[in-house]
Write a protein that binds this DNA or RNA. Structure first.
Lengths: 347, 347
DNA sequence: TTGTAAGCGTTATCAC
DNA sequence: GTGATAACGCTTACAA
């Protein structure tokens, strides 16, 4: 493999014009079987790789998309992003990843960079809650962003899991298991948490309970530690017998907090968490949790983005701009001990 | 923000030539303070974003790098990649991520794509063990790849954590805690595991033990399940009192396997794992583990890549092509119960 | 079926 | 200090 050869060089070597080579590469227009064979032979021999910068410059469209997310490291977002990357890679698109850190300035900066790279589309996770600054007229899919924003913009799809349903299912499970006082651990500022909290309230009301303010533990930071401390801080007041945790870190933190108190899970306190992180499976007892179907979410996003990028004229038909994906409950041992699962038995 | 404006349009509006605008954008050459101000004003007003495709085409160098890794999802690799992305972003580089899935074909395909996007450099995690196919003459940093490969290639740096040291430290800790029979869970095909195993042997010999073949549990797949089963399958033969697990999944699997047997950790069996995944902290007891400094690894990789990309003439001095980063042991409760940590106490 | 040539947005080399 | 202009590698009318 040599220094990069251009289409011109290939044309020369094959004794044809660049136009012919271009046609062959793109399987566009007419050319003879024979020249095609010869050109391909030369391309292979010289390890020709087309220059996407030139191509993109000419066609005004790069086979590249941008994925903006708070942090690649996050389990849920990372997994979904991975699915999207693979899906679109199979369709010839490369993915530029950008950590936004949930920071407005960073988001703007990312959009600038992506724009300058002439990406064909953008996937944006948990968009920061600022005004339409950084608006770009590009196919865009938002994940976990309030669908009420920019309802009139074309080329936009909102995807989100059914957060209300998640909060509802988890809470209902605790209630069905006999809990009389179900507390919830939540972050007040998070869009998805607000929705999940709505589901929590709904389940409570349905079971004949009135949601109490004291049972809503507002945790400021998403971390195991803050959840653990929140349990300790609130326990004196209201001793719940069920804990609905609106994310995975809260689940682990709550478990540790309850164990700190010398209580047993699930005998004394039952716990349901959110998301499918390894932590929740590794803990003892393993924690029952709401599962968001990452594969499906990723594929949905990728499919929608691809559709918009390929569709030349999306005007006219007013499309479905919002897609909601159902969630499920995965039963483990923090609500009711499962028969098959052995457990540390004390002593 | 309008449809994209080009440098030509800006030049027109500012009443200067494109050359002048270009100079101002790149702070290169001479121009008056006054025109600079005026041009910037217009650029801001029209939200001008330079077209990197055109720039890259002209300069033959794109402000973009490729990060190839088995799976974005992986905790260690994902975290390291995230650090690299942020570091290089700060220096103006965007990062294209590619899942290779440890597959040779996929790796080749990724390299092709990256090459076609004219990336300025590549970071490649756990490169597949094939011949030099896909060789490209680009600044490249490998992580966790045998440094013995391609020792003579310029523009290449190998970075790896001290795997021998990791295996050694973990095993030594178990020995010091009084273990007489330390088994090891490992994948035979993995380069890093081979090295870690070397450290295991070294620690054993240093303590006067001869490494026994029966105490090396070869686990075929890196998963919690296979490790759990490996413990069950091997226990009959040799009942160890210490388990050195060469990655995090093995640590959790081993713990579950030991608990399955009705044994206690750390009283009956002591465990050390590898890597800093959340699982290891969330489990009960929390598992003592070897920590690879992800931040430092990521920064080292990014720094080296940047150096190579900026260095116009790397010839002459034969550089250090291999960088080894030390690891540490993080004490938790699977070797010796820590005083501060409360624990499930069984009723 | 193939070739010619313009042009995409930028930089860089010259002039002035 | 500034302005023409060629060139980067490619696609695409249009001609042949």
């Amino acid at each position: 493999m040599d220094e990069s050869v251009s289409i011109r060089k290939i044309a020369e070597l094959a004794g044809v014009s660049v136009a012919t080579v271009s046609r062959i590469i793109n399987k566009k227009g007419r050319y003879s079987k024979e020249t095609e064979r010869r050109v391909h032979e030369i391309m292979d021999a010289y390890g020709y790789v087309p220059n996407m910068l030139a191509k993109g410059l000419r066609t005004n469209r790069n086979m590249m998309i941008g994925i903006m997310l708070p942090d690649i490291t996050g389990v849920y977002f990372g997994d979904v992003a991975s699915v999207i990357q693979s899906y679109l890679f199979r369709h010839g698109y490369a993915s530029i990843f950008c950590n936004t850190g949930r920071d407005k300035q960073m988001e703007l900066e990312c959009i600038r960079i992506l724009q300058s790279q002439q990406v064909a589309g953008i996937v944006h996770f948990v968009r920061h809650n600022h005004a339409d600054a950084g608006f770009i007229n590009l196919p865009t899919v938002y994940l976990d962003t309030d669908p009420a924003r920019e309802p009139n913009r074309e080329q936009v799809v909102n995807v989100t899991c059914d957060n209300v349903m998640g909060g509802y299912l988890g809470t209902k499970r605790l209630l069905e298991a006999g809990c009389k006082r179900v507390a919830v651990l939540t972050t007040p500022t998070n869009y998805t948490h607000v929705k999940r909290l709505e589901g929590y309230r709904k389940a409570l009301r349905e079971a004949g309970f009135e949601p109490e303010k004291e049972l809503i533990y507002a945790v400021d930071r998403v971390s195991i530690k803050s959840a653990r401390e929140a349990v300790a801080a609130n326990w004196g007041k209201d001793r719940p017998d069920g804990l609905m945790c609106l994310n995975d870190s809260f689940g682990i933190g709550a478990l540790k907090g309850v164990l700190d108190l010398g209580l047993r899970v699930p005998e004394d306190v039952k716990i349901v968490a959110y998301d499918a992180s390894d932590m929740l499976a590794a803990s003892n007892p393993a924690i029952t949790t709401i599962i968001q179907p990452k594969e499906l979410v990723g594929e949905t996003i990728a499919r929608e983005l691809l559709r918009m990028m390929q569709d030349p004229a999306p005007e006219g038909k007013s499309e479905e701009h919002s897609i909601v994906i159902p969630v499920t409950l995965l039963e483990r041992d923090s609500v009711e001990m499962q028969a098959h699962a052995p457990r540390i038995s004390g002593k």
